[in-house]
């Protein structure tokens, strides 16, 4: 019993990270119809830049906010310099484009920070809490709190503000949105910036748990993408559900079957689910056409 609770909690922790990354995918996808496979690299940059800033002796909170600002700038730049140039390309080319961007960022990161893992301090104390025989580190609780806060914040931003209304308008019909004086180009930049910010946040909250390294973005990006697909491309509740589900399955698989097999179990599950529901859990049927 204690084992199950333990696995469930660690699954929910990592699942929350997948959910945040998946929300980043959905944010960009809903406006631009681009799947940004460089999303995982934003997470990595979040962790690594934080490490560098802390090493410079900058106070935790300031370093935290600066990291988010820097990663948002990088996301914005990515859209302005690269993605915008390739507008109108087909899904295949866009996937390749963002894979290229991901490899490029990862390569630069390994030249800057080297190949080793780094250590980032936790937000607060490291004293674990015991619940029903399971050990929970405070940082895990922070991760879940952040995930919930991000979901609430995104909901308020998209549903309750004028900016969110413009955002939704672009995602439903860019041409009509332009006629209403909403610039789809600006919204596209905004979606990349917002998504980069989400990635950075994910990286910041997970950094104290997993010892970030230059290549951590690969798996996190792919898992976030899986969560997006699992939930149904374009669906924000689906992304959160998909992320948590993937995290829990992975963690239970690692605990009860084999820790080395956890990725195979997680992706095997994704393949099985796509076989039964080719459009994901909460996706609409027509989205199954590749989401285009």
């Amino acid at each position: 019993m204690a084992d199950s609770v333990q696995f469930l909690i660690s699954g929910l922790t990592i699942g929350s990270i997948y959910a945040i990354v998946a929300l980043g995918f959905v944010t960009i996808y809903s406006v631009t119809k681009v799947i940004n496979l460089a999303q995982g690299e934003f997470v990595m940059l979040g962790g690594m830049i934080m490490f560098s800033l802390l090493k410079l002796g900058i106070p935790y909170l300031i370093a935290f906010l600066t990291t988010i600002a820097i990663v948002i700038m990088i996301g914005w730049l990515l859209e302005r310099t690269i993605v915008r140039k390739a507008k109108g390309a087909d899904a295949l080319s866009l996937i390749i484009l963002t894979i290229g961007a991901a490899i490029f960022i990862r390569g630069i990161a390994s030249m800057v920070w080297g190949k080793g893992s780094v250590k980032v301090d936790s937000f607060a104390s490291n004293e674990p809490v015991y619940v029903m025989g399971a050990t929970i580190t405070p940082q895990s609780i922070w991760v879940m709190v952040f995930m919930l806060a991000i979901v609430a914040g995104l909901f308020l931003l998209i549903e309750k503000t004028m900016l969110g209304k413009a955002f939704r308008a672009c995602s439903v019909n860019p041409v009509a949105a332009r006629l209403m004086a909403v610039s789809p180009k600006k919204m596209s930049s905004f979606s990349f910036a917002l998504s980069a910010g989400l990635g950075a946040l994910a990286g910041l909250v997970i950094a104290p748990i997993i010892f970030p390294a230059y290549d951590m973005g690969v798996m996190l990006g792919i898992k976030g993408f899986s969560a997006t697909i699992l939930g149904g491309l374009g669906s924000a509740p689906g992304a959160v559900l998909g992320g948590l589900l993937l995290g829990v399955i992975e963690s239970l698989g690692a605990g009860f079957i084999s820790s080395g097999m956890k990725d195979a179990i997680a992706f095997g599950f994704v393949l099985m689910l796509l076989l039964i529901r080719p459009y994901g859990l909460l996706g609409e049927k027509n989205v199954g056409k590749g989401g285009l």
Partner: peptide, 15 residues
């Protein structure tokens, strides 16, 4: 199709 296919082949490769 499209992105779903990309995901499926990616997952297969990792498995």
């Amino acid at each position: 199709h499209g992105y779903y296919l990309a995901m499926a082949t990616l997952a297969f490769g990792i498995v």
